[in-house]
């Protein structure tokens, strides 16, 4: 009993510690959003990316009026934890009140957002190996497969089949990008003087297709297709923090 209490204490200790607001959270609470961005960015660099940190960073960026950076943070937070409440609330707020557009998730994407891409893959691999071992072990032992083995096989194959749309949806969710520039034109052709079709706003999420001639073909939330320059959008799948577009590349 004593041991169990100790283990429970150890498990609860981090949760208790989580309740203590850090310097960044304090800065956010008192309205110093620029300070909060700096502190959370430093935390991400030092301790690694988590969905909660990215979501919090997204909130601070949004408060500073940087829609593109905020959307990137929230989208990346959802790639790690598809049900992160802060990121989901942020995106919902951006769509309803912030004038941001985001393609409606397809049925497969909705299904895939139940877990993240890594968990889908792990589940698929685990079920595949379970099936393989259920077939191989009785053969190696030279005995017929038992009833439990048969049931395990069926179960593992079912899980594997259920993982396929999850994997497909995860792939589709990753093939999106956020518009990072303020006034971006969707062009008819991937050329410097390509005719502008319509504008896309900073923070809009687009589905990306093929690249050509320094441009990327994208499909907007309302289904319009066109070309934008590669530097005007940032892929959702990428390193933790949003790219600093103002920073010039090293020579």
């Amino acid at each position: 009993m004593k041991t169990f209490a100790l283990l429970l204490l150890c498990w609860l200790a981090p949760l208790a510690a989580a309740e203590t607001p850090g310097a960044a959270a304090q800065a956010y609470a008192r309205g110093d959003y620029a300070g909060a961005v700096e502190l959370w960015s430093a935390e991400v660099r030092a301790e690694g990316v988590t969905a909660a940190r990215l979501a919090a960073l997204g909130n601070a960026e949004w408060r500073l009026g940087r829609k593109g950076r905020a959307m990137i943070c929230w989208e990346r937070a959802l790639l790690i934890d598809p049900r992160d409440p802060v990121a989901l609330a942020g995106i919902r707020h951006g769509l309803d009140a912030g004038g941001v557009e985001r393609p409606k998730p397809t049925a497969v994407e909705e299904y895939a957002s139940f877990l993240n891409a890594d968990l889908w893959l792990l589940l698929a691999v685990a079920s595949f190996w379970t099936t393989v071992l259920c077939v191989a072990v009785p053969r190696l032992r030279g005995r017929p497969a038992g009833e439990a083995n048969q049931w395990t096989r069926v179960g593992a194959l079912t899980v594997l089949a259920l993982c396929v749309p999850g994997l497909w949806g995860g792939r589709s969710l990753a093939a999106r990008a956020v518009v990072r520039r303020a006034e971006v034109s969707l062009r008819l052709t991937p050329t410097q003087f390509g005719e502008p079709l319509r504008g896309v706003a900073e923070g809009d999420v687009v589905r990306t297709e093929r690249p050509l001639n320094g441009h990327v073909r994208v499909r907007t939330a309302d289904g319009k297709t066109g070309w934008v320059r590669a530097g005007e959008i940032e892929a959702v799948r990428g390193p933790g923090l949003p790219a600093d577009l103002e920073q010039k590349a090293a020579p």
Partner: peptide
């Protein structure tokens, strides 16, 4: 916007968006 919880962690949802 929801109140940020930067220290919230989940044992299942870990990894990198990269």
């Amino acid at each position: 916007l929801a109140t940020p919880e930067p220290n919230r962690s989940s044992p299942f949802f870990r990894g990198s968006p990269a």
